[in-house]
Structures are given as structure tokens and as C-alpha cells.
Amino acid sequence: MSPAIETLITSYNYWITIFLMVAGLYTVIAKDNMIKKLVGLSLFQTSVYLLYLSPGKILGGTAPIIDPALKVYSNPLPHVLILTAIVVGVATIALGLALVVRINEEYGTIEEDEIFETGTGK
């Protein structure tokens, strides 16, 4: 196998992780729509799941459920950390959506630039 293909296989997970992370960052900064911003935030969050899970994978291993027939298991620790992070993630995204709903009721818009033009809401 040529070294270029080997590098591709060994680092592809990290590259995609970084692409998703940067895409989330771009969405949060560039888009004015608040729901789009929250989607960008969750893109960033899911890229972190990949960042944690990729190094824990062992090629040829299986899921960390102990069985006498199996020898090699992937690392269970990142799984635990990300498992809780996903549920906490949806709870916090829901909190963000609740704020967006209230902002829409107050200002009649969910576009950031339009809110700044309106000034302070009453």
C-alpha cells in the first residue's frame, strides 16, 4: 500500500471530524437565522463525538460487552463520556430552542440582523 493511501486511512476520521467542526463553527458565525445557528452548534457537538470515539476504536475489536469467546474490545471509556453528552446535548438544544421561541414572540423574527435593527423589545 502506498504511503499516501495509508495516511488517508489512518487520518480520515480526524479530517472529517475537523471538517464537521469547522462547518459548525462557520454556521454559527455566518448565519443570522437562530435555528440555523443552533443546528450549527449541534454539528459542532456531534463532531466532538467523533473526536472522542475514533481513537477508542481498535481495528478487529468488538463492542465492549464481555464474552468468553472474544478477546479484543474497543475502549469503553469514550463511549461512556459521549453517551451522557448526547442526552445532555439534546436537553441544552431544547433550552436554546425555547429561547428562540421566546425571542420570536418578543421581536416577531428569528433573524439576528433584524433583531438588532428593531432595537430593544418591550
Binding site: 470515539l53 481498535i58 465492549p64 474490545y73 474497543s74 459521549i82 453517551l83 448526547i86 442526552v87 439534546v90
Partner: peptide, 17 residues
């Protein structure tokens, strides 16, 4: 996540995400 052997996490992501 299933390919990365994280079956518990995959289950959570499918139901939550």
C-alpha cells in the same frame, strides 16, 4: 458509531438525535 464499536452510543444517537 456502530462501525466504531460504540453500540450503546449508537442506540442513544439514533433515538435522541
Amino acid at each position: 458509531m456502530i462501525v466504531l464499536d460504540a453500540v450503546d452510543v449508537a442506540m442513544t444517537e439514533a433515538s435522541v438525535g
